[in-house]
Simulated assay, not measured.
Amino acid sequence: MTPAPNAADLAPKTYAWEIQAMDLKVRAGRKKMAVNGLDLSLSLGTHGLLGPNGAGKTTLIRSLATVLSPAAGDLRLFGTSVSSTGDHRNLRRRIGYLPQEFGYYKRFTVREFIEYMAWLKEVPKKDIPAAVQRAVERVGLADRADQRMKSLSGGMVRRVGIAQAIVNDPTVLLLDEPTVGLDPAQRLRFRELLQELGREACVVVSTHLVEDVAAACSDVILFADGRLVFQGTPDELAAAGSSEDPGDSPLERGYSAVLSTSGPEGGAW
């Protein structure tokens, strides 16, 4: 039976964007400004975040997850300024987050771990069993749900990480290098899941794999040296390149072309 909506569910939506950054600056460590003057607005859909190593992608994802606080500028989630509030509990209930590396209790079963994460996300107790079952089914781990985490392969652990990120049916889903450790068949299924999730939420996927973005994302955000250097559809990024640019596909050549013009070291390793 579908639960009755509460007052918050019935309240009118009063914000235009799930994510809105205005001249956002975020530090990585004490000195480096890893995100430097970002203007960005994102709503429903699957958004691919691309960029070279050290571009600031992980710092941006962590700030969107409210793990890092802005150093300057304004970051708004669901119309609420992250900069002006120290209590992020209400925001975090609506966010799903998979970091590059996540901790877990090795003696927990898959089900126990995701139940624990659902509890941390304040999913109502009566809804947790169904939410956990749906999450493990969506990542293809229903047959492994009662195995201990320590017995899983690296790719399976990564899929558990995706499951815990979606167990609360988030409005904003943040995934940092989610396909690390997944085999080709699992990556294909994950792309399908991304497309499905993007119809329900604002999904931001940070990755080095241009082909995943091409297959699953509605738009591309290209980040370099802490700055936004391109935002548009995969086709628009592909059109930015030519046969003379490095890359094995039109999208990779477009990626190379934009980076080569984004700064003095845009094309360097």
Rank of each mutant, 00 (worst) to 15 (best):
H208R: 01
D225M: 08
A215D: 05
G254K: 09
E211Q: 14
A185P: 01
A215V: 11
A201Y: 12
Q231E: 13
A240M: 13
D219F: 02
S243Y: 00
T233E: 07
V220Y: 08
L251W: 03
P170F: 12
G198Q: 13
T179Y: 00
V220A: 09
V172G: 14
V172S: 11
A214E: 06
P234L: 08
Q231W: 04
E200Q: 15
H208F: 02
A215H: 10
Q231K: 15
A214K: 02
H208Q: 09
A240Y: 00
E236N: 06
R191G: 15
L194Y: 06
I221V: 15
V203D: 10
A239S: 11
T207E: 05
P234S: 09
L173Y: 14
Q186M: 05
F190E: 14
L173N: 15
L251G: 04
L182D: 08
T179S: 14
R191I: 06
S243I: 06
D225Q: 15
G198S: 07
D183S: 06
L197Y: 10
A239L: 03
P234I: 09
T179C: 07
D248P: 01
G226F: 09
V203M: 13
R253F: 04
E200A: 14
L193S: 08
A216R: 01
Q231T: 09
D245G: 01
D225C: 10
V203I: 11
P246D: 03
V210E: 05
D219L: 07
S243C: 00
V210Q: 05
V180S: 14
G247R: 09
